[in-house]
Amino acid sequence: MRRQKLWKPVALWSLMLGSFCTKADLVVLQYHHISDATPPSTSTSVSLFQAQIELIRDLGIEVVDLPSATETVFSGNPPAGQRIAITFDDAYESVYSEGADILGESSLPYTIFVDTQAVGSHGYMTWDQLRELAERGGVTIANHTAGHGHLARKPDEAKEDWKKRITHSLDYAQATLEKQLGTSAPLFAYPYGEFDQALEAEVAERGWFGFGQQSGAIGPLSGKTRLPRFPMANAYGKLDGLEEKLNSKSFPIDTNKLPDGIITSNPPTLTLPPSDAIQPERLTCFASGMGRIEFDATDKGVSIKAPEPFNSRRFRYNCTHPAEDGSFYWLSQQWLDLSQPED
């Protein structure tokens, strides 16, 4: 049951909220295929992609280079105004044949996260195509592992074996990108959006930013190795509701303090710490496949738990809260059930 109890006086809430709204937030969009003929779950049709880019242009939101924009978020002095970065996972051929031309017409920057082991395979770009794109202005090529494996430590996997496996996947891919393209961007995208705290530590040790597949905007309180992106496949990138995502604000809590998502009980409980910027009666939360769910709010925080267990490997709790400028704070917590089979 939802208990509607304020954590802090409204005056303090308004003061804190205003300070967040003056900061620029970064919304990162995540794509896979740009095609009408590839699997719908990971595809954005060409017409929808064109419409999304047109909407961004009509809204007047700046599309920025991901490496520098991410650095700027954590610089202590981010610029005012909403910003958007565009990313593609896996380096599918359709990004080269369709997406690159659409973005090139407007000279928009973007990032391609590459599974180096798949390059040249059927449906993927070749090294020559990646090299051609890398030479264009505003195109960043970054690490998406060698092999696109599930990197969170498996329940029966020895720590030493896990360490060896992920070290090869991360470092071999980075070395390959540097050898083939002369690039070593400090960016990493987790395959399937799966990570645990140990994997985050490895990403942090390398000085990389880590990007997941949970939705939300990036702000100064975002965890640098668990940065959100909005999936833009057909089912999630529809124009109806897209403007709210493009203008969303990062949730005003330190996401480093949230769990890494590896569940120990099903359904899991997510606890949000008290925040001057959040009023529980204005908070709305959803669970994958279950729609809107209730939560408990006390002076110790908000406790969110789905009403029944999940039967999938990955699922999410999504929460939104109105921001002062008419946009929404957006938080997505991805959960990972390691007892479920890998994709």
Rank of each mutant, 00 (worst) to 15 (best):
Q4C: 15
L6I: 13
W13E: 10
M16H: 09
L17M: 15
C21A: 13
C21D: 12
T22Q: 06
K23I: 14
A24E: 04
L26T: 02
L26Y: 00
Q30W: 05
I34T: 15
S35Q: 13
A37Q: 15
T42L: 07
L48I: 15
Q52Y: 06
E54K: 13
I56C: 10
R57L: 04
L59W: 05
E62W: 01
V63P: 01
P67C: 07
T72I: 11
T72S: 15
S75E: 04
S75C: 06
P78K: 01
A80I: 14
I84G: 02
A91R: 03
E93V: 08
E93Y: 10
Y96H: 08
G99F: 08
A100N: 09
D101A: 15
D101T: 08
L103M: 11
L103Y: 03
A118T: 10
V119S: 06
H122Y: 12
M125C: 14
T126R: 05
T126E: 02
W127K: 01
D128W: 05
L133D: 05
G138L: 10
T140H: 06
I141R: 00
T145P: 10
H150T: 11
L151G: 01
A152S: 12
R153S: 07
R153T: 06
K154S: 14
P155A: 07
K159E: 11
K163S: 13
K163C: 08
L177G: 05
L177R: 04
K179V: 08
Q180W: 01
G182C: 11
F188G: 00
F188L: 04
P191H: 02
G193T: 00
E194Q: 00
A201H: 10
V203E: 00
G210M: 00
F211Y: 03
F211N: 04
S215I: 12
G216I: 13
A217S: 08
G219M: 00
L227S: 03
R229A: 09
A233C: 13
N234W: 07
L242Q: 04
L242M: 09
L242E: 04
K245Q: 09
K249V: 13
F251G: 00
K257D: 11
L272K: 06
P274Q: 06
P274I: 05
D276S: 15
I278A: 11
E281I: 07
T284N: 09
F286D: 08
S288V: 14
G291T: 11
R292V: 11
E294Q: 12
F295A: 06
D299I: 09
D299M: 15
P307I: 10
E308N: 07
E308W: 07
F310M: 15
S312I: 13
F315P: 01
Y317G: 04
Y317E: 04
N318A: 14
C319L: 06
C319Q: 01
T320C: 09
P322H: 04
G326I: 04
Y329N: 01
L331N: 07
Q334N: 02
L338F: 12
P341L: 03
P341W: 03
D343P: 15
